[in-house]
Structure formats: structure tokens, C-alpha cells
Write a protein that binds this DNA or RNA. Sequence first.
DNA 1: CCCTGATTCGC
DNA 2: GCGAATCAGG
Length: 192
Amino acid sequence: MSWTDERVELLKKMWSEGQSASQIAKELGGVTRNAVIGKVHRLGLSNRAGATPAPAKAEAKPAAAPAAPKPKPAPEAVAKPKPAPEAPVAETRPAISPARKAIIPAGQPLPPQPSANEISPEALAKVNEVEKKAKKISLMELTERTCKWPVGDPATEDFWFCGLPVQAGKPYCEAHVGVAFQPMSSRRDRKR
DNA sequence: CCCTGATTCGC
DNA sequence: GCGAATCAGG
């Protein structure tokens, strides 16, 4: 397999939509996530921010490299009409409360894929669905990899934990993670 | 253990 | 340029 224009295009699209490298690789087929990541870097779009107004975070970066030229290949993001202003929300914010109406930026809509943004009623529906087939485990049955999403009233017998297998190092299963956390976008931190 | 992206380096 | 191996982290 080679990186044809079409494949690269799909790669760009998915990457900008926040899809993970493995998902993209799976979609493309014939390549591994490593290949995707490698390509992403070579394309110079390792930063998922098509036009993120820089967190303006007063990072106390040493920057003690006066003579160190940082050849940062300026993002060629220009001809690309980026409608979504990227919601400036903190990612680690568990929104347990289901009371949340669509705050979807009413900019230019994203016709094909609703993308992976906001909670969306879809995610909520997914949770309902999941709760049906939840394992309904008890507190003591919780392990490192069981979804710890509580359901029901703790003061009642009608209370249990989801118990479905969690994904990654999250405390919840995929469905619940979708409701509890914001998509994903900024995780900039490398110690090396 | 599952996953994520980042980097390196032989090809 | 490519991507497996490796690394670093959740």
C-alpha cells in the first residue's frame, strides 16, 4: 500500500476530526497505526490544532536556547476553511450531570460526519443502551478494568456499577467515557 | 493489559 | 519517504 492522494486525504480528514491513529489505520486498511502516525508527522500535522488559538498558557518553558533555531514548519493551514472554532473546554471535566443541551457551535455544520464533538444525544443514547447490558456489578466487584460508572441511587438496592470492560486507562467503559469526558485534543506533554 | 501519540533509524 | 520498533504515558 502506498500513500495515494485519496488515502492521504482521508488521513488528514480523520486526523483533524480527532480520530485516533489506530482508527485511521483500521479505516484505511493495509497500514498500521505506526504508519499513520509516521505519515502524520511527515505531513507536519502532528498537532491536531488546525487553527487552535494557542492555549495562551503561560508555560514556564525554559526556552534557554537562544541560539537554538527551532525550524517549526509553519502550519500550512490556510486554504482550509476550518469552521469549527474548536471548543475551548478543559478535557478532564467529568460531566456527570446529564443535563446538558447541545452547545454545538452553530458555525458551518459538518455535513457528513458529526465528528467526535460534544456529548451529543447520540452518546447519551449509547449510555442508555449500555446500561441495559451492563454487568451490574457491586462496589466490591470493581477492578482495575471494570467500568466504575454508577447507576441508580446508592441508597437503594437499585444501585450498581456498569462493570463493562474499560478502555485504556480510563475509569469507565467506552460509552461512559464518551459522556464523562470531552473528546480529546490537547495533551501536550513530553518529558523527553 | 488495554490503549494513546512520539521518536528513532534502517531500509 | 516509509513504518516497525521502541519509547513514554494514561
